[in-house]
Design a protein around this nucleic acid. Structure first.
Lengths: 250, 250
DNA sequence: TGACGCTACTTGACTATACAAGTACAGTCA
DNA sequence: TGACTGTACTTGTATAGTCAAGTAGCGTCA
């Protein structure tokens, strides 16, 4: 798709089209760096805010991945799914939650941030248990979970470990995914996460925010970063924004 | 969820929290009007662009519905789905595509816009067949489809009708939904659409962009506005942004 | 070697302003 | 009555600048 003549597109849309054309033609391949806001602004003779808007929208649409201080990169995109695939994948996800082994890398009590508190249904600043869990599949780390658990709803087999802070990794089982809150695809792993997942290049990761329930209560709010598994979990089940009466995206 | 103390939230986030709190507490009910950008800016002592950002993000997150010239309204939201529900709904959608009757309200040959051309894989400005289809369920109009069909891929039973422009409504069958391109929920029906769907209040509609295939080619690109059916189609199957090598959101 | 600080560059947040474009409504006029 | 016009208000697009915050790379120094 080449740059076709104007057709009265506003500047920000023209920049979007330009970037999409470069990506689709393969000139800018996956994970390669995209010109910065200032570079695009200069190239198109617009202000930085206009170039910025184009890049932000393309990020939301899944074309790009952005990171403060690093830059903007071409995201890894997946094809549209048929209803049949949706059904099969939903089935698999619903059934295979216990298949992985997992290592808990870190565990500590923290004060819940605004977002975490909202998901857990506790006041902001209240104590929550934070653990970092790396999921292992056939010896390969495929998924990293940044898990927050409300103290009241902590399952028994984990609660004992929360009483002491343990820097050592140990194995635990993984709860099945019961529902998906929402999915954010525009994520670059932090250096820490990249190390855990053995990522070298700036590879676009998948970020899933999910909630699990225990005895009818919200038990945990987790963010998954999940670059290398067979199914890219969240991308397939990205469906619901919002929740019953609480919970949002910020 | 009341307005809890600051916690170093940037202004735009504080406005978002304020609006969400009003919605969740029921002070601002569904489809009721939200303060305008200027009103919020004055109330919070920020510039219009900052208030605007808050409203725009809340729109993307499904809290609000906006329309130029009209204003901003509280959107109708749905609960998070379990994997089980996803499976069931995907199954139903995949199987019930032929259940509806439909009326074609208008049919004419038009020049494809940038977006339509991209979806159909034809050059912008090339001729496409545009029809407006209203779907009937038990005598009630539940869905309106703004359908573009590439002339090369037009199915035989429709092609004959494309040769003549017909202002008269007539019944046709509805092709099953094979896949979903993406879903936009933040939509107010135009006055025309509202009339067809017999909507009186400014009710938030569901907009689905989908593509169907015919003999391996992209046959049509349709936008569905879908307020009243039992399952709110797109909201449940909103999953894939982007496509194989073409197609985007703008 | 390792810790530190500096610089250059990136995105994030925000201001204040301007004009364009779409909607609703009241008023005018044939 | 019906068509038209102007006004007020809304969101959409864009500018040009500021400062904050995060990252990488370099050199310095103990």
């Amino acid at each position: 798709m080449a740059d076709t003549p104007a057709a009265h597109l506003p500047p920000y849309a023209r920049i979007k089209r330009h970037v999409v054309a470069r990506i689709e033609s393969g000139q800018w391949s996956v994970t390669s760096k995209v010109p910065s806001e200032n570079q695009l602004a200069a190239e198109f003779g617009v202000s930085r805010m206009t170039a910025r808007r184009a890049l932000l929208e393309l990020m939301q649409e899944g074309w790009l991945v952005r990171s403060q201080g690093l830059g903007t990169f071409v995201a890894d995109r997946k094809p549209v799914l048929s209803m049949l695939e949706v059904r099969n994948i939903a089935e698999e996800i619903a059934s295979r939650g216990h298949l992985y082994a997992a290592k808990v890398m870190r565990m500590e009590a923290v004060a819940a941030t605004e977002a975490v508190a909202m998901y857990l249904g506790i006041p902001a600043g209240a104590k929550a248990f934070h653990s970092i869990v790396v999921h292992i599949d056939n010896g390969v780390p495929v998924q990293m979970e940044d898990r927050y658990v409300s103290p009241a709803a902590a399952p028994a087999y984990l609660a004992q470990d929360f009483t002491r802070e343990t820097p050592n990794a140990y194995l635990t089982r993984v709860a099945p995914i019961e529902s998906v809150e929402h999915v954010v695809e525009a994520v670059l792993p932090t250096s820490q996460v990249a190390r855990w997942l053995q990522i070298t290049a700036p590879e676009a990761c998948l970020q899933i925010n999910r909630r699990t329930w225990s005895r009818g209560h919200v038990a945990s709010y987790a963010r998954l970063v999940h670059p290398g598994s067979r199914y890219r979990l969240g991308g397939y089940v990205s469906l619901a924004r919002g929740a019953h009466s609480r919970g949002h995206r910020t």
